[in-house]
Amino acid sequence: WVPTKREEKYGVAFYNYDARGADELSLQIGDTVHILETYEGWYRGYTLRKKSKKGIFPASYIHLKE
């Protein structure tokens, strides 16, 4: 896992994603996520609506905010 280059990196989910394991994070369309790390097509972070739950999710489900 590699920390993100920018201190504040955010994105928005444009697909729903159902977590398949305890380390994964479920997403709903429109969720804003804070991205902490990246690795081979995956991000690690949390949604702003539930900051206490961190997990991994596919990068392809996220539109990055500039």
Rank of each mutant, 00 (worst) to 15 (best):
W1K: 08
W1N: 07
P3H: 03
P3T: 07
T4V: 14
K5L: 10
K5Y: 08
K5C: 14
R6F: 11
R6N: 12
E7A: 11
E7Q: 10
E8H: 14
E8G: 11
E8P: 10
K9T: 10
K9F: 09
K9V: 11
K9W: 12
K9M: 14
Y10I: 10
Y10P: 00
G11C: 10
V12H: 05
V12A: 02
A13H: 01
F14Y: 11
F14I: 15
Y15C: 15
N16H: 08
Y17W: 08
Y17S: 02
D18A: 11
D18P: 05
D18I: 13
D18G: 05
D18T: 14
A19S: 06
A19I: 03
A19W: 01
A19M: 02
R20E: 07
R20H: 07
G21F: 08
G21H: 12
G21Y: 07
G21K: 11
A22I: 09
A22Y: 08
A22E: 12
E24F: 06
E24C: 06
L25R: 01
L25V: 07
L25D: 03
L25E: 00
S26A: 05
S26E: 04
L27P: 00
L27I: 06
L27F: 04
L27D: 00
Q28G: 05
Q28N: 11
I29S: 06
I29P: 04
G30C: 09
G30D: 02
D31W: 05
T32F: 15
T32P: 07
V33W: 01
V33N: 00
V33T: 00
V33M: 03
V33Q: 00
L36F: 07
L36M: 09
L36T: 08
L36R: 01
E37G: 06
E37Y: 07
E37P: 00
T38A: 12
T38C: 10
T38K: 15
T38P: 01
Y39P: 01
Y39I: 10
Y39N: 13
E40R: 10
E40G: 13
G41F: 05
G41Y: 05
G41D: 08
W42E: 00
W42F: 04
W42Y: 05
Y43P: 00
Y43C: 05
Y43W: 02
R44W: 15
R44E: 05
R44G: 04
G45V: 04
G45Q: 03
G45I: 06
G45K: 02
G45T: 03
Y46R: 04
T47V: 15
T47W: 04
T47C: 14
L48C: 15
R49V: 09
R49N: 15
K50Y: 13
K50Q: 14
K51V: 11
K51R: 12
K51H: 09
K53P: 04
K53N: 09
K53M: 10
K53F: 08
K54H: 12
K54P: 08
K54A: 09
G55N: 00
G55M: 03
G55S: 02
G55I: 02
I56C: 11
F57K: 01
P58R: 04
P58Q: 04
A59S: 13
A59G: 06
A59P: 03
A59V: 08
S60N: 09
S60D: 09
S60V: 10
S60A: 14
Y61H: 15
Y61E: 03
Y61V: 15
I62Q: 00
I62L: 02
H63S: 10
H63P: 01
K65H: 13
K65V: 15
K65G: 09
E66I: 12
E66L: 13
